[in-house]
Amino acid sequence: MQIKTIFAGFGGQGVLMMGYSFAQAAMFEGFHVTYLPSYGVEVRGGTANCTVAVSNEEIASPVASQPDYLVVMNNPSLMSFQTRIAPGGAFFLNSSIITGRPNRSDVDIWGVPTAEIASELGNPRVQNVVMMGAYVKMTRIVSAESYLKSLKSILGTKKKAAMEINRKAFEAGFNYIE
């Protein structure tokens, strides 16, 4: 088993944190994992993306020429990556701001209105974690427990309130999608 996911959006949407929190959760579950961020001049333009590979054996390449999953937080990222997704893969779209639909009929498409859900929770900054709730549920690569453990280790023990709102965001995303 080897699954590659690209997380993409614009700077400030917490895209790298999405990939990192997922990669760490996969590590907790004993998988081989690589996390590769875009870097250098590429990230200065305001877009950000990272690639996470999870496998039960050594990972040859941390690059995903044909990702299985694409988690997309804005329109430009959808345009950049939609042709690359593997047949039978799935899109996770931030439907709050992504107006277009992917021009692919051979993949699953899940829309999550992260902005609306996050503002219902009273914190627009947790949109990325809302999305991760949906992603973790549908991909079933890591358990919700492992993901929350990863999130907790990132937020640190001092920020109880931050963990609470993030946990709620994760659950909201998790429960949103059927």
Binding site: Y20, M27, H32, V33, T34, Y35, L36, P37, P62
Partner: peptide, 10 residues
């Protein structure tokens, strides 16, 4: 190389 430096692994 640039990639081994940038990528994260356990």
């Amino acid at each position: 190389d640039g990639m081994t430096g940038q990528m994260m692994e356990p």
